[in-house]
Structure formats: C-alpha cells, structure tokens
Amino acid sequence: MPEPLLDVRDIDVFYGDFQALFGVSLRVEAGAVAAVIGANGAGKSTLLKTIAGLIAPRRGEIVFDGAPTGAAAAFAMARRGVALVPEGRRLFPSLTVEENLLIGGQARRPGPWAIERIYELFPMLAERRHLPAPALSGGQQQMAAIARALMANPRLLLCDEISLGLAPIVVRDIYARLPQIVAEGLSLVIVEQDIVQALHAAAHVFCLQEGRVALQGKAAEMTREAISAAYFGV
C-alpha cells in the first residue's frame, strides 16, 4: 500500500469541554478525491479545520506527506501545502477579487497554478478582477474562494460545503471544474451535504455521524441503504 498523502490517525477534537470528534481516522492517497458526508453537526467542518491546523487535536495525530503535523499552526500547514476553502467562502470583503487571489498566493509553492491559469479556469473572475469581493454572486464567490486556495499550489485541497446556499445549476458548474483541478496532481477532500454530488465526484467516501466515522468505502460500492443508515444512524 503506498504511503498516503494525508493520514489522520484516531483523533479526538474538542471545543472546550465539548467533544466534536471521537477517534476519527482517514487516509487520502496522493491524487485521490475523497468525500466526507454526514448530517449537520456530525463534525465534518471540524475535521477539515483540524487538518488545516485551525484546531489542534487533543489525541491522535495527523501525518501529512510522511511527517506528523504536531501542533503546527494554520499558516504553517498552508505553507506545507494544505489549503482549505472555508464554509461560507469567506473572501476578504475589503479586497478586490484579484487581491483575494494574490493573497492566496502570498505563501505560494511552486506548481501549475498562477493567476493566468486561474483566469483560464474561471473566466468570470478575470472579467470581475477589479470588483470588490462582496460584489460577486454566491457562485462566483465560491469559485473565487477555490481559486484563492489554488493560488498557493496546494498538494491537498480541502473544500467545505461547496454547494451551500447555491443554486443546483451553479453547483454543477463548479463540480464540473473539479476534475481539471485534480488532474494537475493535487488531492481533494470535499465535505458535502449533497450526497449525490459527493458520490459522483469522489472515489472514496467517509460518512461521519456524531463525530465518528460510521461508514467508509469506495463511492462506487456504496449502497443507498448503507449511506442512509450511516447518515441518520438508523
């Protein structure tokens, strides 16, 4: 078995006294696409934030590219090649679209993504490059948030709830661009409530339920019944 790019080993994560993740383990191979699904409050976003270094696990460890991350801060993880597209997009509102992209590339690693490539992938951003970020529509903001993360040339891209609050046609448009991104050689972990999109996009699926991995396996082999059972705990 090849060494995975990301190896989350049995982590417990707390917010104060509240435990959000219980012994979660997850492996993502280089170049693979994994989806984390689960109901609201299952701990999906917490898992991504922990991988990105925004929260430190209280127990267990995360190994990225063969080295334990320890208590590395988010900025250090970003420099090592982990990029998180946060839930709700969170573009910098006082920056223009282009400035948002440039800040994404502030600690960039060598790689295929530069601003011209980004504008080829998302032409609508090129047209709006000088607008303030809040002037974009929700879908455009989501694309800008993904583009901003790509500017760092990450090896692992974490996307939290791409489809949240967006029209289905916009969601399809964004998902249609993901294969081009993965083809450049990065690994992708998507957190998604839209199970159909998730199963379609990912090769491997992890289903979280109340902070635990309730089900995992190849997306193609997942049955609707197994997912329902893991998702709703029935």
Partner: peptide, 24 residues
Amino acid sequence: TALGRAFRATSDDQPVAQLMGLDT
C-alpha cells in the same frame, strides 16, 4: 503592496488569513 494587502486581509478575517499562509 503585498504587506498592505496582508494588513487588510488580516483585519478582515484573521483565521482565513492564517489559512492563506500568513502568520498573523
């Protein structure tokens, strides 16, 4: 300048600025 951009981004949203590799 890039430093000014980092100032404004950090002012807007500190955690996300960290995610961009900025040591706030």
